[in-house]
Amino acid sequence: MSEAAASNGLFRRLILPGLAFKAVVIGGGYATGREIAEFFIGSGPQGGLLGLLLAMAIWSVVCALTFEFARQVQATDYRAFFANLLGPGWIMFEIAYVLFMILVIAVIAAAAGEIFAALFSGPGWIGTAILLTFVIVVVSLGTAAAERMFRYSSALIYAVYAVFVALALWAFGDQIGGKLAASTPGSGWIVGGVTYASYNVIGAVLILPFLRYHGTRRDALVSGLLAGPLAMLPALGFYLSMVAFVPEISEVALPSDYLLSRIGLPWFTFAFQAMIFVALLETGVGMVNALGDRAISAARSRGMIIPAAARLSFSALIVLGAGVLATNLGFIDLIAGGYGVFGWIMLALFVAPLLTIGTFRIFSKPMEIAPS
């Protein structure tokens, strides 16, 4: 095997799953900063940081166990995964997932509208329409296209976040350090970290189509443990930048725009908001692609083939319906009213069974594959 091939294999086995997980969670997790403000700012600078680190640890553990469980039962979509984990109860997860997906797409659609309005002073629905159109197009091209997008878009996202943190430290770094040093952990950071981790960790089962390169338990566990830091690193930098403006930033609809205005570089404001748009696109593609792959797998098990036109129509129906929801509910209301509820639902339907039943089965004996 050539050195290039070996390097590519290592990337696909250990790094790609973390990038795919980051892609699914970033748009609904921290791209605009609104979610970070909702779950962590209220606990104070130190408390919020502890909450984020707790959420990162939960992501790593759950991803590692999810990836290995999926490898053992040969699950390539969430339906097969939960058929093995919950038995007939898998349908409860699918119902919850479809509702959650609609919520997330509504959130990213609303965020795209906010970004377009902030950048161009135009009607927000144009930004929403552009984002949803791109989601439909990429998903209609299949998982391979999504994989290529995640690889290149991740490089852009990490680079722009790195520049953002450097500029924030240059512009108001003294305020960040001062507020961190003067604070003590407030109450609620454990609940905030667990809730935030729980509603986002659903991404671990949505990226199963990207785990096909795993060949050993080591591949699954190592890539899972890396997924937490890979997904959380931009959020940690974003949070530290937000600390400079606690507590007033907790009431801002778009904390990213608030911080960029204080950095005061118009060219970077445009670059950062464009990057957020890409991050929102990643999440929309990841969420809808998971449901599309599940539908294709179900059709194949019945000897049917879903044509490309049907997949396109299916994707369009989902994202356009969520877009309508986004135009009728406020951005902050969507996050505050929906994410917390789904966090506890996912904790009950996914995290708790995985940490108990799933962990026992992973490490106790060979597993039988449930019929699809």
Rank of each mutant, 00 (worst) to 15 (best):
E3M: 09
A6C: 03
L10D: 02
I15P: 00
L16M: 15
A23N: 09
A23W: 10
G29Y: 06
Y30Q: 04
I36V: 15
I36A: 15
E38C: 06
G44T: 01
L53Y: 09
A55N: 12
M56V: 11
T66M: 05
E68W: 06
A75K: 14
T76I: 08
D77T: 13
D77R: 12
Y78S: 11
F81V: 12
F82H: 15
A83I: 12
L85A: 14
L85H: 13
L86Q: 12
M92K: 06
I95R: 11
A96M: 15
L99I: 12
I102Y: 13
L103E: 10
L103V: 14
V104M: 09
A106V: 10
A110Q: 10
A110I: 11
E114Y: 13
I115D: 06
A118P: 00
P123W: 09
L132M: 14
T133C: 12
V135A: 02
I136E: 08
V139Y: 00
G142M: 08
R148D: 06
M149C: 03
F150K: 04
F150S: 03
R151D: 12
A159P: 01
V160H: 11
Y161E: 02
V163F: 14
F164H: 06
V165N: 00
A168N: 12
G173M: 09
G173A: 12
G178S: 14
S183K: 02
G186Q: 07
W189G: 02
T195G: 00
A197C: 07
G203C: 03
A204F: 05
V205A: 05
I207H: 03
I207M: 06
L208H: 12
P209C: 07
P209N: 09
R212L: 05
Y213R: 07
H214E: 03
R217Y: 00
A220G: 05
L221E: 02
L221F: 08
V222Y: 04
G224V: 05
L226R: 06
P229F: 08
P229R: 07
M232F: 15
L236Q: 08
F238W: 06
Y239Q: 03
L240R: 12
F245Y: 12
F245T: 02
I263V: 15
L265C: 03
P266H: 03
P266V: 08
W267A: 15
W267Y: 14
A274D: 00
M275R: 03
I276Q: 04
F277G: 04
T283D: 01
V285Q: 07
V288Q: 04
N289R: 01
A290M: 05
R294T: 15
S297V: 11
A298D: 09
A299Y: 13
R300D: 04
S301L: 15
S301I: 05
R302F: 10
G303Y: 14
M304F: 14
A310K: 14
G323C: 09
F331D: 04
L334C: 11
A336M: 09
G337F: 07
G338F: 06
Y339Q: 10
Y339F: 14
V341I: 15
F342S: 03
F342I: 03
G343R: 11
I345G: 11
L354R: 00
T356H: 00
G358A: 05
T359M: 13
F360D: 04
R361W: 07
R361H: 10
F363L: 04
P366A: 02
M367G: 06
S372P: 05
S372L: 15
